[in-house]
Design a protein around this nucleic acid. Structure first.
Length: 887
RNA sequence: GCGCGAUUAGCUCAGGGGUAGAGCGCAUGCUUCACACGCAUGAUGUCGCAGGUUCAAAUCCUGCAUCGCGCACCA
C-alpha cells in the first residue's frame, strides 16, 4: 500500500492503467475459453471520423456492458473497427487534392486516386481509435477490423454474387435520388426531408386549339419546364373535363404537349393542373410510365441545365435557372403570380444540397429474409430497448423498397461484375448497358476476377457503404470466433441508424448465417446542447470530448454523461455534468485517502470482522452495499444506465461518506482503541473493495488505481479481471442497520436544532437525550455526526424553561443553552413543529375515518396508515408535553 | 396526414395509484485534522390543461395544447 498523492490527477493515472491493461492482454478474448461467451461488435465509426459526445455515450455504454460481463465471469469479446465511409472519405481526399494540387480525382485517375485514399487512411484514419482508447474502451484491439480489409472485402463480393445469382440483385434504369454535388445516386435513407420556404409559381399555357385561352398551372420548379411532356388534371375535376385530350403550348422550347387525366393530381392543390416532367420527379415519372410519355432530361448530373434549345438557360445552375425561367415566363406574359409556399425538399445527407430526382442505371437489391427480420423482433427473439422502436422497425420493413446499392464513387467495394468487352465497346461505355438483355456469357459476376481480364470491362461503380456494414457482426469474425461469439449479445447504437444498419444487419444475419446477429439492441439517446439544439459543427455547440477529458478525466466524462443520460429520450448536455463526474471521482479518492492516512489494516481480506465486534454503522453500511449490488443488478437488467450511475453516486456520497465515515471517524483517531480502529478499517476495506468493483464499469481507471493502491488487488492482478463475489457481505442484521438509520436521523434533528439556534459552528454544546432506546448505550455514537459537542443520555431530565428540544427516533433531545434560551422563541418554534405534526395526524385520521378507504384499500395499506398515525400522535404528545412545560 | 416521444423545483432530469425526489443553482453558516472538486442547514412545486375511472390520480384512460422526432406527402 503506497501513499496517495494529495489531489487526484486523472490524466496520468488513466493513461498508465490503460497501457497496463493493454500490455497484459486484459481486453483479449480467448476463443478457447471455457467461460460463457459475451460479445459486442462496435458500431464502426467512420475511419475519417473524430470522437464526438454521441460516440462517448455509445461507447461508454458498450464498455460498461463489457466490463460488467467480465466481472460476471464471462469471456468477453468487444470487437472494434472502422468503416471506410465511401462518400465521406472520398470527399475529404478529393478536397485535399483540389486544395493542394488543384486537381480532381479524374485528373489523377482511379488507381492513383485510390492509392492516395489508402495513404490518407493510413495517415489520418486511426484518430478515432486513439480517442476511444483514451476514453478507456476495453476493445479487443488485436481484432480491430476495417470494412475494406481483404477478408472483409471477400465477404462483400461473395454476398453480392450470391444475391445476384439468387436474382435479388438486379441492374436497371430507375428514378433515383441523385446528389449533384457528390455526383452519385443515394439510397432513400440518405435523403433528409427539410421544410423550405419556397415559392409557388402560377403560370399559364396556351391551348393549341384555342389561341388566347389558357390553362393555369402551378409549380415550385419552373426550371424543369423544358422537360415537361404533358399537363395532368384529375379525371374527376369537372373544371377541366373539357380540356382532357387537348393540347397546350409549352412556352420554351416551344412544343405542343397533351393534357392528360391522372388520379394522382390533387384537385385542391394550386390550380388543379400539374405539369409533368417525367425525367425529374418521381411522381411525374410514374405518371409518365402510365401514359407512355416522353422522358426529356433537361438537367445534367451536376445540377446544371441541359437544354441546348434554350441557350439562355443551358448550362445554368438549377437554382439560377429557376429564377431565369420565371423571368422568361413573365416576359412572355405567362406568369400569373408567385406565392410564398412552404414545402419539404429532400436533401443529400452528405452534401446537404437538394437531391435531384434523376433517371439512371443503378444496381438494386430486393431485401432478403424480410419476414424473418420482422418476426425476430415481433416474437422477442431480438429485444429492442426502448421497446417502442420495434414499431418503427416493423413499419419500415413492411413498406420496404428496393435498395439502390450502387454509388458512382471510387472509394469503396467495386461491384464485382464484368461485362464482355465487345458489348461495352459497342455501346461506348457500360453506363447504358442493359444487364437483363445480356447473354449469360456476356456478363461475369464473381468475387474472383475473370481469368481472361483482357476480354472484360469491370462495372465502375462501388457499393453503398452500408452494403458492407450490414455484414459487420459476422464478417468481422473468423469461423472459430463465430463459433464462440456469434450471435453477439448486445448491440448499442443510435436510433438514427435503425434502418441504415440495424434492420439490414438482421436481414443479413438470417440470410448468411441463418441466425440473428444479436440478441439485444440498446438504442442510445441523442445528445443535444443545453438549449436543446442538435449538436452540429456549424453551430459550434459540440464540445470536443478530448478537451473534456483533459479537464475532467475520462472517468469524469463517462460518469457525468451516464449518470443523467435518460433512457429513451434526448439528453441535454451540460458541461456541469462532467464537472460533477470529476467531483465524484475526487470524493471517492479522498475517502480512500482518508482511510489510508489512518493506517494499515492487519490484512486486507475483503471480509467483515466477526459480527460481535461490529457496531450498527458497520452493519448498516455493509447491508447497504449488498442492497446496492442487488439494485444495480435490477437496473442493469433493464439497461437503465442512468439509474445505475445515480445509485453508485448516492451510495458513495450520502451513505458511505456523509453517514458511515462521519459516524466512525472517531474510531480512526489516535484516542480510539486498537480494536475499534481495526474493526472500522476492516469494514471500510470490505465495503470499499466491493464498491470499487461495482463502480469499475463506469469509472474504470480510478477504481483500478485505488484498488491497487489500497491493496485490494494483488500486484500483477487487475480489478477489471476480478469476478464479483457471489456471496453477500452480511445478512440477517437488519435490526442493527435500522438502529444506525435511527441514529443518523437523530443526528440530523440535532443539527437542525444547532442551526436554528445559530450554534452550528460551536463545539462546546451539550445535548441531553432522554427516554432513549435501550440499545443506545454509547453516548459518543452520535457525536461524530455532530462535529463536536457532548451528549449525555439520561433517564429523566428537568429541562430549564425554553430549552430547545426535539422528538427523535431514539428519544427526546434537549439542547440546553445557557444564556441563549428565549422562552418565547422556543414556544413559537415548538408551536410551529406541533402544527406540522398535528396536520400529519389529521391527515392520517381523515384517511382512517374514510370508511371506503378502510373497507376497500388493501389491509396492509390500512395497517401502515394506522402505524403512521400512532407514530405521529406519539410525537405530537411529546411535543405538547414539552410545550406545556414552558407555560 | 399517420405514428412515436416529452411536458414534475429557477435549470437538467429521476419517479410513478396511497406522506412530491436528486444534482446543480439559490440563501445562511462553516479555513471541523479525507475532500471548498468540500461540510452543514434552509427556501422553492395547483407534477401542461380539461374531463373520466377509483376509497384514493402527478401516476391509469380519453380529449386538448405546446415542443420534439420518425414516416408519408400536393406539383
Amino acid at each position: 500500500m503506497s501513499e496517495l498523492p494529495k489531489a487526484y490527477e486523472p490524466q496520468a493515472v488513466e493513461k498508465q492503467w490503460y497501457s497496463a491493461w493493454q500490455e497484459n492482454g486484459c481486453f483479449h478474448a480467448d476463443t478457447s475459453s471455457e467461460k460463457e461467451g459475451y460479445s459486442i461488435v462496435i458500431p464502426p465509426p467512420n475511419v475519417t471520423g473524430i470522437l464526438h459526445l454521441g460516440h462517448v455515450l455509445n461507447n461508454t455504454i458498450q464498455d460498461i456492458l463489457a466490463r460488467r460481463a467480465r466481472q460476471q465471469g464471462k469471456e468477453v469479446l468487444w470487437l472494434p473497427g472502422t468503416d471506410h465511409a465511401g462518400i465521406a472519405t472520398q470527399t475529404k481526399v478529393e478536397r485535399q487534392l483540389r486544395e493542394e494540387e488543384g486537381k480532381t480525382r479524374r485528373d489523377v485517375g482511379r488507381d492513383a486516386f485510390l492509392d492516395r485514399v489508402w495513404d490518407w487512411k493510413e495517415k489520418h484514419g486511426g484518430i478515432i481509435i486513439q480517442q476511444l482508447k483514451r476514453l478507456g474502451c476495453s476493445c479487443d484491439w488485436d481484432r480491430e477490423r476495417f470494412t475494406m480489409d481483404e477478408d472483409y472485402s471477400g465477404w462483400v463480393a461473395k454476398v453480392f454474387t450470391d444475391l445476384f445469382n439468387e436474382g435479388l440483385i438486379y441492374r436497371g434504369k430507375r428514378m433515383v435520388n441523385w446528389c449533384p454535388v457528390s455526383l452519385t445516386a443515394l439510397s432513400d435513407e440518405e435523403v433528409i426531408m427539410k421544410p423550405q420556404n419556397s415559392k409557388l409559381y402560377f403560370m399559364k399555357y396556351e391551348l393549341v386549339d384555342a389561341p388566347g385561352e389558357f390553362l393555369e398551372i402551378s409549380t415550385t420548379r419552373p426550371e424543369t419546364l423544358m422537360g415537361d411532356s404533358a399537363v395532368a388534371v384529375n379525371p374527376k375535376d369537372e373544371r377541366f373535363a373539357s380540356y382532357i385530350g387537348r393540347k397546350v403550348r409549352r412556352p420554351f422550347p416551344e412544343a405542343e404537349i397533351e393534357i392528360i387525366a391522372d388520379d394522382h393530381v390533387d384537385v385542391e392543390f394550386g390550380t388543379g393542373a400539374l405539369k409533368i416532367t417525367p425525367a425529374h420527379d418521381k411522381a411525374d415519372f410514374e405518371i409518365g410510365q402510365r401514359h407512355g410519355l416522353e422522358i426529356i432530361d433537361v438537367i445534367h448530373a451536376d445540377g446544371t441545365i441541359n437544354c441546348p434549345d434554350c441557350p439562355d438557360l443551358d448550362g445554368l445552375d438549377r437554382f439560377q435557372a429557376r429564377r431565369k425561367a420565371a423571368a422568361k415566363l413573365e416576359e412572355m406574359g405567362l406568369l400569373i403570380r408567385i406565392e410564398e409556399y412552404e414545402n419539404n425538399v429532400g436533401y443529400s445527407e452528405r452534401a446537404d444540397v437538394p437531391i435531384e430526382p434523376r433517371i439512371s442505371m443503378q444496381w438494386f437489391l430486393k431485401y432478403p429474409c424480410v419476414k424473418e427480420a420482422v418476426d425476430a423482433v415481433a416474437d422477442g427473439e431480438i429485444t429492442f430497448r426502448p421497446a417502442r422502436w420495434a414499431k418503427t422497425y416493423a413499419h419500415w420493413l413492411e413498406n420496404i423498397q428496393d435498395w439502390c446499392i450502387s454509388r458512382q464513387l471510387w472509394w469503396g467495394h467495386q461491384i464485382p461484375v464484368w461485362y464482355r468487352k465487345e458489348k461495352v465497346d459497342a455501346l461506348q461505355g457500360a453506363e447504358s448497358l442493359d444487364v437483363s438483355n445480356l447473354e449469360a456469357g456476356d456478363i461475369y459476376v464473381s468475387a474472383e476476377p475473370p481469368s481472361d481480364p483482357e476480354n472484360w470491362v469491370r462495372d465502375e461503380d462501388v457499393m453503398d457503404t452500408w452494403f458492407s456494414s450490414w455484414l459487420w457482426p459476422f464478417a468481422t469474425m473468423n469461423e472459430t470466433e463465430r463459433g464462440k461469439f456469434y450471435p453477439t449479445t448486445d448491440l448499442v447504437t443510435g436510433p438514427d441508424i435503425l434502418f441504415f444498419w440495424v434492420a439490414r444487419m438482421i436481414m443479413a444475419g438470417y440470410r448468411f448465417e441463418d441466425e440473428l446477429p444479436f440478441k439485444n439492441v440498446f438504442f442510445t439517446s441523442l445528445i443535444r446542447d443545453s438549449q436543446g439544439r442538435k449538436m452540429s459543427k456549424s453551430l459550434g455547440n459540440s464540445p470536443d470530448p478530448i478537451d473534456l477529458m483533459d479537464e475532467y478525466g475520462a472517468d469524469g466524462l463517462r460518469f457525468g454523461l451516464l449518470r443523467t443520460a435518460p433512457v429513451g429520450t434526448d439528453v441535454r448536455f451540460d458541461e456541469q455534468l462532467v464537472a460533477e463526474g470529476r467531483n465524484f471521482a475526487n470524493k471517492l479518492y479522498n475517502a480512500c485517502r482518508f482511510r489510508q492516512m489512518s493506517g494499515d489494516a492487519a490484512e486486507v481480506s475483503g471480509q467483515l470482522p466477526v459480527i460481535s465486534r461490529l457496531r450498527p454503522y458497520h452493519i448498516d453500511i455493509a447491508t447497504k452495499l449488498d442492497h446496492l449490488a442487488e439494485n444495480l443488478e435490477k437496473s442493469y437488467s433493464d439497461y437503465r444506465f442512468n439509474d445505475v450511475g445515480q445509485q453508485l453516486y448516492d451510495f458513495l456520497w450520502s451513505e458511505f461518506c456523509d453517514k458511515f465515515l462521519e459516524a466512525v471517524k472517531g474510531d480512526l483517531r489516535d484516542t480510539a482503541s486498537a480494536e475499534a480502529r481495526e474493526t472500522t478499517l476492516a469494514v471500510f476495506d470490505a465495503v470499499m473493495s466491493r464498491y470499487l468493483q461495482l463502480l469499475h464499469p463506469y469509472m474504470p481507471h480510478i477504481t483500478e488505481e485505488l484498488s491497487a493502491r489500497m491493496g485490494y488487488v494483488q500486484d500483477g492482478a487487475f480489478l477489471m479481471e476480478k469476478t464479483y463475489p457471489s456471496d453477500a457481505l452480511i445478512s440477517g442484521e437488519d435490526a442493527a442497520a435500522s438502529q444506525a438509520e435511527a441514529i443518523y436521523a437523530t443526528a440530523g434533528r440535532m443539527r437542525n436544532l444547532k442551526a436554528e439556534y445559530n450554534v452550528a459552528a460551536r463545539k462546546d454544546v451539550k445535548f441531553i437525550i432522554i427516554k432513549a432506546e435501550p440499545w443506545l448505550t454509547a453516548e459518543t455514537d452520535v457525536l461524530g455526526l455532530l462535529a463536536g459537542g457532548e451528549i449525555e443520555i439520561l433517564t429523566a431530565y428537568e429541562a430549564p424553561k425554553g430549552t430547545p428540544a426535539a422528538v427523535t427516533d431514539v428519544g427526546e433531545v434537549y439542547l440546553p443553552l445557557e444564556g441563549l434560551i428565549d422562552v418565547e422563541a422556543e414556544k413559537s418554534r415548538l408551536d410551529k413543529e406541533i402544527a406540522k405534526v398535528a396536520s400529519e395526524v389529521t391527515k392520517c385520521d381523515a384517511k382512517l375515518g374514510n370508511a371506503a378507504f378502510v373497507d376497500r384499500a388493501p389491509a396492509e395499506l390500512v395497517d401502515r396508515e394506522k402505524a403512521r398515525r400512532d407514530e405521529w400522535s406519539q410525537k405530537l404528545g411529546q411535543l405538547q408535553e414539552m410545550r406545556a412545560s414552558l407555560g
